[in-house]
Each structure stands twice: as C-alpha cells, then as structure tokens.
C-alpha cells in the first residue's frame, strides 16, 4: 500500500508513535496528521494507518466514523463552519448562516458546485462571549453578524482570505 505523504508528515508520525504507552493511542493523532496532509481520510489512508500501527482497518474505521472532525471526503477549498449552539444562536447564528448560504450559493451541510466552499454547522467552539463564531479553515472569526457574514463571503469569493 502506497501513500504519497509529505516528508514532514512521516517525520511527525515517526516521532509521535513511540511517545505513547501503547501504540494504539497514536491512532487519532495519525488520523489528524494524514487528514492534514491529504485533506481527508480515504480508504487507502485508513488501511495505511492501520498497517502503520499494527491494527486492523476496522479499528481505524470505527474512530473515523465516530469523530465529527474526521472526514472521508475532501471539503471545498474553503471549509466554513458556523457554530449553531445556544449562545451563538441567541446572538443570531442562524441568520448568519442563512446569509452565508445566500452569498455563497450553497446550503448548509454541502459543498458548492464549483468546489469553492463547504458550509457546515458545528457545535459550541468555546468562544461564546464573541458569538456568533464562524471558522474558515482553522481561522476563527468572531461577532459575525449577517452583515459581517456578507463581508466574509465576499472575501472568500474574491480569494482574499
């Protein structure tokens, strides 16, 4: 089984695995590392991780299907996550999300047809004092009212982000 991984990824994996008391503990970190490298976890990736850790593919499969942040499909170029939990909702997160849907021409839970954005709802991101919270990739944007969502969407569409 071959995987084209960046040499830094391989490096990180080789350093990380022996640090844990049991090899299986490295399963979730490896999923993260491979997902960062490849954008998502393919069937081959899952087999590769299992093989690297001397586990069965099902042992990896079962965590990939359990943890919401692990993906078996690539996202759009921009991965936009809108927090919808109560504090953000009280601050208008659902309106923010509707605005993003309109501006980016994609419905929440989907990737736009041109592959530019994946728009998703997520649960509390632990920054509720600055609600509504929106993530674009790993960058956090806070106090995103519908109007600020429009600005954010413009930047995404213009590639300014």
């Amino acid at each position: 089984m071959r995987m084209d991984l960046k040499s830094q990824t391989i490096d990180k994996i080789d350093k990380l695995v022996p640090r844990y008391p049991t090899i299986r503990s490295a399963a979730l970190p490896l999923c993260h590392l491979i997902q960062e490298d490849q954008g998502y976890l393919s069937k081959e990736a899952i087999e590769w991780i299992a093989n690297r850790l001397d586990l069965q593919p099902i042992n990896i499969q079962e965590i990939v299907t359990f943890y919401p942040m692990l993906r078996t499909e690539p996202t759009g170029k921009y991965h936009v996550r809108v927090c919808r939990t109560l504090p953000c909702a009280l601050a208008g997160a659902y309106s923010t999300c509707r605005r993003l849907e309109e501006e980016l021409d994609v419905s929440v839970g989907h990737t736009s047809e041109d592959g530019l954005v994946t728009l998703e709802f997520v649960e509390c991101h632990a920054d509720c004092g600055k609600a509504p919270v929106v993530m674009v990739g790993e960058d956090e944007y806070t106090d995103i009212s519908p109007d600020r969502a429009t600005e954010l969407a413009k930047k995404i569409k213009n590639g300014d982000l």
């Binding site: 503990s25 979730l28 943890y67 942040m69 692990l70």
Partner: peptide, 12 residues
C-alpha cells in the same frame, strides 16, 4: 515527567 498534547476530534 513529560507532557503529551493529544487532540480530540469534535466529540463532546
């Protein structure tokens, strides 16, 4: 003693 930072993946 050392510290390992272990990341979760979105499950409450």
């Amino acid at each position: 003693c050392d510290i390992i930072v272990h990341r979760g993946a979105g499950a409450y």
